[in-house]
Design a protein around this nucleic acid. Structure first.
Lengths: 330, 330
DNA sequence: ATGAAAGCGCTAACAA
DNA sequence: TTGTTAGCGCTTTCAT
C-alpha cells in the first residue's frame, strides 16, 4: 500500500492535520514538529495523492487539449508549446484527439469534463447552438483556437481571411491570371466547424474580386490531384495553384514535378502555415507564416487566467499576426 | 454546484446505492427503478466525477506518456498512435515533455505518479541504478520505448544496431570508401540515456569493420555543418555521410546543395527514421524505415495488459522490424 | 500549536 | 430489491 498522511501521523505521533500543515507549508505549526514530519515523509517515501486532493479542493490542476490529430506539423508544434507553458504554470495536460469526428469530439470533451480538468483548449470540429449549450453545461473554462465558435468563447487565432487575401494579392501582382484553389472536402458543410478553411477560402475570393479576376476553379475534395491531371498548364494563361495549407501544396508540387512542369515557370504554387520542414523543400514554397507557438502560449495563459481569476484576460478575441513569405514557387 | 448521485437519489426518492446500481449497470435492481434513475440522471444532466471514483477504486483509467518533445516527426506520429489506442482501451492520456532534461523528466514522472496514472509509457533520458530504484518505488506499470533501460522493464523498440548495420552495409556495397557519421552531442555521456543513438553508432561501426574499412570521422556536436565546411568532397575518396536521424540528413543535404555539391555524385547521404515528409524531398533520401505507429500501439497494449492482468504480455523485449529504403541520395 | 472530526463524490460490503 | 454505512486520502473548520 501507498504511504498516506495517516501513516506519517502515526509514525510521528501527531495528527493528520499537523502532517498536512507541515507538508503544505501552512501556518500554525512549530518549526520542530514540521521538520520531524518532513523528515518522516521523506523516509517513508510519501507521495501525495492528487486525486484525493482534487476531490476536496475541487481543482485538479490539469488542462485538456482537444485537437484533430498530429499529422499536420503545426499541430505538433502547437501541442509542444501548450505542454511547455502548461507545466510552467503547474498544470498537467490531457491530450484528446478527435480525428475530425464530431461524435468523437463530444465524447472527448465529456471525458475531460468527467476527469474534472480545470480548463479545456478546444480546436473544435463541432459547432452550432446545441453544441454550445452543451459546452456551457459542463461549466468548465474553455478557450477556442483556430476554429472560431462564437463570441461566447475566448478565441485565439490569426486573421485567416486577411492573411490569405494578402497572400493571394501578392500572387496576383506577379501577373498570374488564372487561379485554382485547393482545400479540404466539404462533406459536412453547414454541420462541422470549418471556420479556418472557410475564412481562407473567402480571403482568396476577396483578393480575386478586388482585382476583378474571375477565372478560378475551387477544388474541395481529397482527390484533387486527379483534377489537376486533366489540365495542361503550359497551354493556358499563367496559373497559380493556391492551397489552403502547406501539406496540400507539397503534394501538389510533388505531382507537378513528376509531370515535368517547371515551378514557377509553368505554374505557381502557394501554401499556408509555413510548417518547419519547408526549409528543406525546393523550390522554396510561397506561404503564409503565423506564430503557432504563440497561439499555444496565449491559449494556456488565457485559460489559466480564467481559472484563477474567474475571467478571461481580454474581452475580445485575440488575433495574432501573420506574414507573407515570398518563395520561389510563385 | 454539480449534480451528484445524492441529488439523483433525493430526486427519485431512493438511496445513493440504488443510483449507483442503475448508473453502472450493476445487478440487483428492478428494471423500473433503473429506468427512473437513468431518466432523472439525464434530466438533471448528471455527470460522474471520475476523481471521486478513482479515489475509491484505486484506478484512474489514465496513462501517461513521457517524451522529449514533438519536434521530430516520429514523436508526433508515435503520440498520435498512442492516443488513438489508449482511448480505444478506455484510457485517457497525459502527455509530459521533458526537453531531454533529466531533472525535468524525474519531475514529470513524479507528477504522473501523484496524479495516479495507471501506467506510464517512457522514452527516458535518465538511466542508472538510482533512477531505476526510483521507478520501482513508484510501483506503477511502466513500459519503456526506444531508449532501453534494463531487463527490469518491458521494452518496445526496434533493433537499432542491426538496422543501422544493415543500412550502412548497403551503402558500402555501393562503393563508398570514406564515411562520416553525424549524431547528437554526447554532452552527458555516461549519465543520460542515449541508448538508441549509441546503438545506431555501433551498428555503423560494426558495418565498417565487417568490411575492413577504417576511414571514418564521427561528429557528435550540434555544429556539425561547420565541420563539413572544411571538407572538399570532390577531392577525396567517395564519401558517404551517415546521419543518425533524418532530421540531420535533411540539414546536411540542404547544406551540401547550397555548397553546390551533387548528391550522390559528389557525396552520398543516408538518414534514419523515414519521417513522413521525406516523400517531398529530392533527391529522395536513403534511410531506414520502422513502424513507429506500431511501437505506439504495442506500448499501449502492453501496458494495458500489465495493468489489467498484472503481468506484461511477453516475457521478452519486443523488437519490431525495420526496412532499408534505397533512395537517390546514395 | 495541535487534535478531532466532518466531508469532497463515489463504491462496495453488509443489512434489512 | 433496496437502504445503510464505512471508507478512499486529503483538506479544513472548529475545539482544545
Amino acid at each position: 500500500m501507498r504511504v498516506t498522511i495517516k501513516d506519517i501521523a502515526k509514525h510521528c505521533g501527531v495528527s493528520s492535520g499537523t502532517v498536512d500543515r507541515a507538508l503544505n507549508n501552512r501556518p500554525g505549526i512549530k518549526e520542530k514538529t514540521k521538520q520531524k514530519v518532513l523528515k518522516a515523509a521523506k523516509e517513508l517515501k510519501y507521495r501525495p495523492d492528487f486525486t484525493a486532493r482534487s476531490l476536496v479542493k475541487g481543482r485538479t490542476m490539469t488542462l485538456g487539449i482537444v485537437l484533430f490529430d498530429l499529422y499536420n506539423r503545426s499541430f505538433a508544434q502547437l501541442l509542444n508549446a501548450v505542454e511547455l507553458r502548461a507545466r510552467q504554470y503547474g498544470y498537467f495536460l490531457y491530450i484528446a484527439l478527435t480525428d475530425k469526428d464530431m461524435e468523437n469530439e463530444k465524447q472527448c470533451i465529456e471525458y475531460l469534463a468527467n476527469h474534472k480538468v480545470d480548463g479545456i483548449i478546444l480546436f473544435s470540429v463541432n459547432k452550432g447552438q446545441e453544441f454550445e449549450e452543451y459546452l456551457h453545461g459542463i461549466s468548465i473554462p474553455i478557450v477556442t483556437i483556430f476554429n472560431f465558435l462564437s463570441a461566447d468563447w475566448e478565441y485565439i487565432g490569426i486573421p485567416e481571411r486577411a492573411a490569405m487575401r494578402n497572400g493571394v494579392s501578392h500572387i496576383i501582382n506577379k501577373g498570374y491570371q488564372q487561379f485554382i484553389y485547393i482545400s479540404p472536402p466539404l462533406k459536412y458543410e453547414g454541420l462541422t466547424n470549418i471556420y479556418t478553411q472557410e475564412e481562407r477560402l473567402h480571403g482568396f475570393l476577396e483578393a480575386l474580386s478586388a482585382n476583378n479576376l474571375t477565372e478560378t476553379e475551387i477544388i474541395r475534395h481529397n482527390d484533387y490531384l486527379a483534377d489537376l491531371e486533366t489540365i495542361d498548364f503550359r497551354k493556358q494563361a499563367k496559373t497559380a495553384i493556391i492551397c489552403s495549407c502547406d501539406l496540400y501544396a507539397l503534394e501538389v508540387m510533388r505531382f507537378l514535378k513528376k509531370k515535368g512542369y517547371q515551378i514557377p515557370e509553368d505554374v505557381g504554387v502557394m501554401g499556408f502555415d509555413n510548417i518547419d520542414v519547408l526549409k528543406y523543400i525546393s523550390p522554396s514554397l510561397t506561404t503564409i507564416e503565423y506564430p503557432v507557438e504563440d497561439i499555444g502560449y496565449k491559449a494556456v495563459e488565457s485559460i489559466v487566467h480564467k481559472i484563477e481569476n474567474g475571467s478571461y484576460i481580454g474581452k475580445e478575441t485575440s488575433e495574432l499576426s501573420y506574414r507573407f513569405i515570398a518563395g520561389e514557387s510563385t
